[in-house]
Amino acid sequence: MSLVAIAEKDFQDTVRSRGMIALVALFSILVAVFAYLVRPEGQGGEEFATEILLSFFVGPFLVTTLIPLVAVVVGYNAVSGERESGSLKLLLSLPHSRADVVFGKVVGRGAALALAVFAGFLLPALVLILLPVSFNAGAYLGYTVFAGALGVVFVAIAVGCSAAAATQRRALIFGVSIYVLFVLFWSALTGQILDAASPIVDPLPASADQIRTFLEVANPTTGIEVLTGAFLGEQLFRGDALNQQISAVSMLVFWTIAPPLLGLWKFDVDDL
């Protein structure tokens, strides 16, 4: 109950945040522009329009780059911002535990971001409907759900960092690092680590390729790409890549729960 109260309060607060609204508007306009630019010219491409647009253009260029950014912006100050400004004193003067605060914020801000992502996909949907191409509403809606899920995962990571950070400044550094790590450097970094660790990896029963695949989908952005690719190709939770998809789902769940828990572990013992 306490958690719900905080989540609701935080949701109301976050949906009014100008920063998030501006970023989502930008996102929405960019997706709409992409939809307009890559519209198929001939008759033959029509039935693939929605799927191709999403998996080859919007996905890699917009969703996996912009949505984590919006999520980090929404999440990084969740706890540290209130701690620095003093509104955390109001929150903790009421009968809330610190765990309620951290997880309430994950839920509230996650929900606010998910709503914003849905709103952000409305304008491009309108463009697609108005263009003379076939619009696959089911695929489009499903894709939106995955995009929202990606946002929630990054909000959870950012809120976890925010809870662990004693100051806004540190929370911001954490947030930027998360973004850089997952969006820009993940494959390079994990590849390096895997190469360096090959003497340890080689005797393991798993092959280096399997480990490489696992590490790739351990990145939430790749995980979502794998899942949306399967979804749009109507291969979700079946076919050869089933194991990979299950790994992706488990890692997304892991990233939603572990960072807030770790953040809470530090936040719970701090003097505020």
């Binding site: 309060k9 109301q12 003093g86 509104s87 109001l90 003067s93 009421l94 009968p95």
Partner: peptide, 21 residues
């Protein structure tokens, strides 16, 4: 703490409010 604050009303020092609410 939670049980105590259920029965306590607090006006803290050095707080800020939620500007957008």
């Amino acid at each position: 703490g939670v049980e105590i604050r259920q029965r306590t009303g607090v006006l803290p020092d050095g707080f800020t409010v939620y500007d957008r609410l």
